[in-house]
Design a protein around this nucleic acid. Structure first.
Lengths: 202, 202
DNA sequence: ACAGCCACTGTCGAAATGAACAGTGCCTTT
DNA sequence: AAAGGCACTGTTCATTTCGACAGTGGCTGT
């Protein structure tokens, strides 16, 4: 996107955000200078111009407190694809699999998901993951023991809790009607890790 | 919440919110008058004073654009408040209860939620609602049997499945360690219905 | 060495803004 | 019938606020 901010500029931006959070309005140049400890209001002006140039902020000419935070630019909420049924042998993110797409704002989940996956079956119901739920998945090929992962097993995509032990890897369901699946490391392909869940009530 | 607004006052409030959404700042009295079609900016001033008196807005003296939208009026288009701990006796949406706010895009849930509620306890774990989850709640005072509702019982807020029968209402937990709660209709206050869920993995 | 960015101090005038004062007419409640 | 809230018009005035101009010193890349 735009240029990187200097440390000072980031501080100024945070300061503006804080002020706006507290008072519901943007600071004037004088207030900003006061908050940042500047002797001159022009220091604030300079910073604002820099922030505008770098695309973080929009300044409305001749309007008091005319500082509009362009957080949309900083935190773009892109549309994430919803992966429905995954066809055998096809990469999980292939277009054929995309059911629709949903806007997911930055910050909704602490870890940014790469895509959403429509859950099929209730093998994870004791972990609160139900048939039809959307799970937010961060694409990665490594996972720690205990994480809920999206794994591919012989062209089949499944969601399970990963257990790693000296004896090998196990994919644990969270439903007593299902049995754990032992896998050899070379057979197991991690597609991503579970970072969140979205459920839509009927 | 405080006093009811007149139609005109509601229009003014909406106008302010719209302006703030578009420009990132509150309107001046002159701008507000222009937007509302007033010939005199004092008309805007009068409305602002009324809105302040009714608790919808806070006016910062002698500060330009010093209009701070309060509580319910504040909640911008797609930012929903997250209600954390609910203090006894306090309306559920009171500012004191708001933990933070989270952007929730239109269309993420089929029914638009009014707010998000942080779940405490695991009384609904068999329904896939876990401790710490955020549930999306649509504010309403009526609910159908079988819906998951947010109910208030003697200053206590609880999430349960509502069962209505000729004998009365029952709040059903989804966890065998908890027992159903029978309530008389006059004792039961429905705060809203469950329309969705957001979970953030650690 | 010199240009260019960064991070400031200090001053000034013009435009933007809030707030107070003085009215009007229409309601509703008492 | 009087009182009070609501919804405005119209005006003036003190402040606030922005934006432009004039400088300083440090640091970085070329």
């Amino acid at each position: 996107m735009s240029e990187k901010l200097t440390v000072r500029q980031q501080q100024v931006l945070d300061c503006i955000r804080q002020f706006q959070n507290d008072t519901g309005m943007a600071p004037t140049r004088a207030e900003l200078a006061e908050l940042m400890g500047f002797q001159s209001k022009n220091a604030a002006s300079d910073h604002l111009r820099a922030l505008e140039r770098k695309g973080c902020v929009r300044l409305h000419n001749d309007r008091s407190r005319g500082i509009q935070l362009l957080d949309a630019a900083l935190w773009p909420d892109d549309e994430l694809p919803v992966i429905g049924r995954v066809a055998a042998g096809v990469p999980i993110e292939a277009v054929e699999n995309v059911e629709r797409s949903v806007p997911v704002p930055q910050g909704l989940f602490r870890q940014r998901p790469t895509y959403l996956l429509r859950v099929q079956g209730d093998s994870m119901k004791d972990a609160g993951i139900f048939d039809g739920d959307l799970i937010a998945v961060r694409k990665t090929s490594v996972a720690r023991s205990g994480q809920i992962v999206v794994a591919r097993l012989d062209d089949d995509v499944t969601v399970k809790t990963l257990k790693l032990s000296p004896q090998g890897a196990t994919l644990m369901p969270a439903n007593e009607d299902y049995t754990p699946i032992r896998v050899s490391p070379d057979q197991l392909v991690i597609e991503g890790v579970f970072v969140g869940l979205i459920r839509d009530a009927v």
